[in-house]
Design a binder for these strands. Structure first.
Lengths: 130, 130
DNA sequence: CATCTATTTGCGCAATTAGGCAAATAATGA
DNA sequence: TCATTATTTGCCTAATTGCGCAAATAGATG
């Protein structure tokens, strides 16, 4: 691994591999059904069958999505009896999602009130659609 | 929009559309080259040609990636002369990336400890040489 | 062991996507 | 005007991805 070690921020000076790793992490979150699963797991652990019902998704796909999330260390796996229970392994995921939701909410606000001026600066900011 | 759950957090009770929107947001971050572009923009605004050189990517692709980032409101666009300058429009992106990097660093630590010798107790955390 | 249930995985298909190449567009200057 | 530079976009290909279906595994119970 070629670490450039520019310690301005964790993102600064990342190697190709590290960048790919971060991208994979985001990729795991870039699916509505996986987000739904994570959201469902917020209330506590659930097995695959429960998630299948709660998320309205086939068992096979829930299993696959859980595998993808587990690969990124987002959820933990625990076999109990004939079932496999999954739970959130990294609560900071929700911090990520909350940040994104805030950003998107902000976008919606801006979109909703294009002609209103609630931005403090009077600059013309990125409202450009061809 | 159908809110199905109590709103303990922004992620809770998200409609299908909102969930898809969040997923799209993460999707925009789920590419190494786009992360590299964002990382490069951290030092300040750059035009497409500069980013092409700094990121080692073709002009067309840089342009496309920038369009994807702009679509999510992550970067802003400003034409000056014959060039188009892009800059970070939402600094909270870096908070996202930093969170992810911390999570991944943690993963690396755990992987490293496990890989090194699984006979040791995993409560010692002294493994950090990126 | 046989069997049932729960979960995982292999395979194929349809849809999406990143990248290369070239043509099209925009802005500047002779 | 035409030429030049900078950026965007259309088209194509290769690779990836999510899903449905069915077969395969793992664990518990008779």
């Amino acid at each position: 691994m070629v670490a450039t070690k520019n310690s301005a921020s964790p993102l600064a000076g990342l190697s190709e591999q590290a960048l790919a790793h971060v991208a994979e992490y985001f990729q795991a979150l870039a699916d509505p059904m996986r987000l739904r699963i994570l959201n469902t797991l917020r209330s506590g652990e659930h097995n695959v069958g429960e998630l299948t019902e709660l998320c309205g998704c086939s068992t096979a796909n829930v299993s696959r999505h859980l595998a993808a999330l587990a690969k990124q260390g987002m959820v933990g796996r625990e076999s109990r009896g004939t079932s496999v229970y999954y739970s959130i392994a990294d609560a900071s995921i929700y911090a990520l999602c909350d940040l994104v939701c805030c950003n998107i909410a902000r976008q919606f606000e801006q979109q909703a009130s294009v002609h209103k001026s609630f931005t403090k600066a009077t600059q013309k900011r990125g409202r450009n659609h061809p």
